[in-house]
Write a protein that binds this DNA or RNA. Sequence first.
DNA 1: CTGAAAGCGCTTACAG
DNA 2: CTGAAAGCGCTTACAG
Lengths: 328, 328
Amino acid sequence: MAARAGVSAATVSRHLRGHRVRTAVAIQEAIDALGYRPSIAAQSLKSGRTRTIGVVVPDITNPYFAAVVKGMESASRDRGYRILLANSDESSEREDDVLTDMIHQVDGVILAPATEQDETPLHVRDAGMPLVFVDRDLAGGEHFDAVLVNNREGGRQAASHLLSLGHTRIAAISGQQETTPGRHRREGFVEALADGGLELLPEFDLTGDFREESGYQLTLQLLSSAEPPTALFTANNLMTVGALKALHDMRVGIPDQVSIIGFDDLDTGPLLNPPLTVIDRPMVEQGVLAMRLLLQRLGQGDDRGGGSRRITLDTKLVRRGSTGVPRR
Amino acid sequence: MAARAGVSAATVSRHLRGHRVRTAVAIQEAIDALGYRPSIAAQSLKSGRTRTIGVVVPDITNPYFAAVVKGMESASRDRGYRILLANSDESSEREDDVLTDMIHQVDGVILAPATEQDETPLHVRDAGMPLVFVDRDLAGGEHFDAVLVNNREGGRQAASHLLSLGHTRIAAISGQQETTPGRHRREGFVEALADGGLELLPEFDLTGDFREESGYQLTLQLLSSAEPPTALFTANNLMTVGALKALHDMRVGIPDQVSIIGFDDLDTGPLLNPPLTVIDRPMVEQGVLAMRLLLQRLGQGDDRGGGSRRITLDTKLVRRGSTGVPRR
DNA sequence: CTGAAAGCGCTTACAG
DNA sequence: CTGAAAGCGCTTACAG
């Protein structure tokens, strides 16, 4: 390449980095003719930077995370960064594996941790690697950058809505209590219930794992109780789908027999039978914000300066047809 | 690291690569104590391999591609490979950009090309980079490895189903005719219609872009015709959702006024109002198969040997409630 | 402005 | 079995 243009490799490098060079024309001609592209591996070795961001989410087939990743991807590409993607499959061990594996291959990491107690993120941070949380936080995560939503308020909105319809026999299928959204959504829900003078009965206070199957099974369990609830809150999109399938299979009328309100909207939410009432929140936007936060850190070459930056977005109630007054 | 263990870097390297080494214990102790991990950049520079696979899909928020990517991710991680993910956003230019950008950073590429005429994949292949197509093929792609489904047969199944119900005023919203699935699904559909003695009328032969909005707009267009169709085939999941929203907004009864059959099932398919009839196909499995095909090539260190390997999976009709006999 | 040289962190053929 | 040395392809401080 350098030979073809009749200059040294150093000059080619300078040209590529935007320096003024006498032989620019000849070099560019050679680049085009040979389709030359500098070796990323060599650049990384020299510079210690890879222009690659590691992204670890629990499940890319969850439409929420798919949207978040899409936001990250477009925000990163605009700035010349690429994305190394991994699924943790809701497992801390797997998260540890993928994080450890990618740590020397990326300039920074965006992570939705499997649990708030995960320790690997702390090691990542201690290693000087910029880290941003999205969707989920770490216990004591105040010192980390994060893009979250007000899950507690979202839980409150769901409970308030059901209370306002007159429900008293209310159930919740929460996510893992070791995760931020799992815990906060339930806490907000319980708080608002208490504000309304209601208690979340133990048999109506169920915990799933953010997967469809758990929503399905736990809903069957609720339906089998002597006196089933008249209203149900499902703490994420996949469990909502599972719950809806269980209600559907058991021929339970919505909202006549059971009202249901989910957390996170579905693309088909308005088309369901009946249309689904949900607590909605920004999705693609969260990915964009998280990526920008991380790239700012990288840009400053400063991974701690100015303290942590934490963005909390609002949720909002979308009333549709799956919630109504309780059955008599 | 080598110093800490009192040996040379060469010996550490040998130990890490599984060679028998006298100082193995001391080295391992040092590795654990320091949390040492070899630099991927240096390894790549030396070996010319990155153990990273580039994955380019048109849209990660399409549940089909999310599932495919999930399959790829698990299949790759099992073998110690990572995934560099990019969206082409259905654009050949963007695909060219991301492909060119990642080419020196990956050992192989799995791609769902934006169009069958894309040229960049040819350059990728010519550069000696193993390449596997998934979901979509390239014109003259017989020489490339690929994991596809029988789209033509899927189109035929959709048309046959509508014919069997007695429909004669049938419309189709196809995908880009420059893509394999777009073209083949429409061709199969038209063929089966012809077998039934029917022609796809020009005003009922519409082409969208595999995005929800196009399904929505084109359905509005169909509904505005003097005598609308009694049945509609939408050639992918997102356009199906768009069509359903248009039918919903216009208060068109399904299937009483219009029957609809989509291509690709939705997680909420059985829960829609009415449940959605679709042509279904394996999703996660396609990703797994594509990744295995690629890793086999890499394992053999042989990117052309034995000719191309092409896997074509079958589609299948899932009858639910959105298709019925035509309105009188 | 430009080239020679050093060095990023590995791996491996070559001696020993 | 093991170390010294070379080299993978870049970038950059140093001379000129």
